[in-house]
């Protein structure tokens, strides 16, 4: 459980990046945080594993304030995958890269081996075990970074821009993977600009702007609210756009999912027949 209460954060350069954020994320929830560049998304999620400490207010992880514990301690529960994989890859082989965190957390040798196999398998990296991570493509490096965090099986996963640089198939794999994590009751917090990806996953959506949360609710409500999205420089998902433009034909306005859309269109077309 992540509890955030009246969180303010001011960078040393005097930029007030968060201006009174309050929110709760329950165990097993899937949350997407959206909003324009500089809205404070990354700053907010960096509070969840203690990388940043509140200037005012508090953040509690499983009822413990982040100021009362260390990043290393929090990280065991909260895995954080950074936006740019090049900011973390440093090992000679993919295998060693994945082992890094496991060793830091003091897992036993046999466990480390098992977890490496498991994570590489999950992300389709098995053939790269002895390859240097620097020789992989951008998308593959991103998967190595993800695997290196998944390996210790944290309860909560924070993903900063996971879909950047991923082709359609990898995005679909990522979505399947998130669904799988959800069935295991993992909490997932995803920071993203990828409105189509969010529409496909349909999580709870938090909309941020200038260090504040301006909307918090179901994907179907927020991603179909033209006014809100314009404020955050987000365009409607394509499905929602079509449905809104065809509103004069009596189409429902809260559709973002392609399968829902298909079913509604089939109903209408069948009636016509």
């Amino acid at each position: 459980m992540i509890e955030v209460e009246n969180l303010h954060f001011i960078y040393p350069s005097n930029v007030e990046a968060l201006k009174g954020i309050s929110l709760n994320i329950r165990d097993g929830e899937f949350v997407a945080i959206m909003g324009q560049n500089g809205a404070g998304k990354t700053t907010l999620v960096k509070h969840f594993n203690g990388l940043l400490k509140p200037s005012r207010g508090f953040v509690k992880i499983n009822s413990i304030e982040t100021t009362k514990t260390s990043v290393a301690e929090l990280a065991k529960n909260i895995g954080f995958v950074f936006q740019n994989p090049d900011h973390q890859l440093f090992s000679e082989t993919v295998e060693e890269e994945i082992a890094f965190a496991l060793k830091n957390f003091g897992f036993k040798e046999e466990v480390v081996k098992k977890r490496i196999d498991w994570a590489m398998n999950l992300l389709g990296l098995s053939q790269y075990r002895d390859t240097s991570p620097f020789l992989l493509s951008g998308g593959e490096r991103k998967r190595v970074a993800l695997a290196s965090v998944l390996a210790w099986n944290p309860n909560t996963l924070i993903l900063d821009e996971p879909t950047i640089g991923q082709d359609h198939r990898q995005k679909e794999n990522l979505r399947q993977f998130i669904i799988q994590m959800q069935t295991q009751k993992k909490t997932i917090v995803m920071v993203t600009h990828d409105v189509e990806f969010v529409a496909e996953c349909n999580p709870r959506v938090l909309l941020m702007r200038d260090g504040e949360i301006i909307a918090d609710g179901k994907g179907t409500d927020i991603l179909t609210n033209q006014e809100l999205l314009t404020k955050s420089s987000i365009v409607l998902p394509q499905i929602a756009q079509i449905f809104q433009e065809l509103s004069c034909f009596g189409l429902p306005q809260n559709i973002i999912d392609i399968y829902d859309a298909k079913n509604i269109l089939i109903q209408i077309l069948e009636k016509k027949k």
């Binding site: 594993n49 990388l51 290393a72 990280a75 900011h87 973390q88 830091n104 957390f105």
Partner: peptide, 16 residues
């Protein structure tokens, strides 16, 4: 700035 981000990324993987 990059060095700071990298340090954060490694701390998040348990580096002390």
């Amino acid at each position: 700035e990059e060095a700071q981000t990298i340090m954060d990324a490694q701390k998040a993987r348990g580096l002390e």
